[in-house]
Computed example of a mutant assay.
Amino acid sequence: MPTVLRWGPYRAFFYSNEGSEPAHVHVRRGDMEAKFWLHDLSVAVNAGFPSHEIGGIIRHLRSHRDELLGAWNEHFGN
């Protein structure tokens, strides 16, 4: 479960067994977690984050999208 980005209380990471899925990142804060597709930064799954917080997370991920895609490709060998 490599962490690829940290900011404030958030941690963005991959699950190593999900390389067969399209590129995505999980973001966790406390006991909340959400999964975001990297091609369009849409929410695939949200477990606990309020909608106003999701918007802020997406804005942050958008500013680091190239870095996240690079980390995905390096980790999964794409």
Rank of each mutant, 00 (worst) to 15 (best):
M1Y: 12
M1H: 12
P2D: 09
P2T: 13
T3M: 09
T3K: 12
T3P: 00
V4I: 15
L5F: 10
R6H: 05
R6A: 08
W7S: 02
G8Y: 06
G8H: 08
P9Y: 03
Y10A: 01
R11Q: 10
A12Y: 00
A12W: 00
F13L: 06
F13R: 01
F13K: 03
Y15K: 14
Y15I: 13
S16R: 14
N17P: 00
E18T: 10
S20P: 00
E21M: 09
E21Y: 04
P22L: 14
H24D: 08
H24C: 07
V25Q: 01
V25D: 01
H26G: 02
H26K: 08
V27S: 00
R28N: 03
R29K: 12
G30L: 07
G30T: 06
G30R: 11
G30C: 07
G30F: 13
M32V: 00
E33C: 08
E33R: 04
A34W: 01
A34T: 02
A34M: 07
K35C: 05
F36C: 04
F36S: 02
F36L: 04
F36Y: 15
F36A: 04
H39Y: 13
H39R: 14
D40G: 04
D40K: 11
L41H: 03
L41W: 09
L41E: 08
L41V: 09
L41Y: 11
V43F: 05
A47I: 11
G48A: 12
P50G: 07
P50Y: 13
P50W: 14
P50T: 09
S51L: 11
S51W: 10
S51R: 07
E53H: 05
I54A: 03
I54Q: 02
G55M: 05
G56H: 11
G56T: 06
G56L: 11
G56Y: 06
G56F: 05
I58F: 08
I58L: 11
R59H: 09
H60S: 06
L61W: 02
S63I: 10
S63H: 08
S63E: 15
H64W: 03
R65S: 03
R65E: 06
R65N: 13
R65T: 07
D66K: 13
D66Y: 04
E67M: 14
L68N: 03
L69T: 02
G70H: 10
G70L: 14
G70I: 13
G70Q: 15
A71R: 05
A71V: 08
W72D: 09
W72I: 02
E74S: 13
E74Y: 10
H75M: 12
H75I: 07
H75E: 14
H75S: 09
H75G: 00
H75V: 06
H75Y: 15
F76T: 07
F76S: 06
G77I: 09
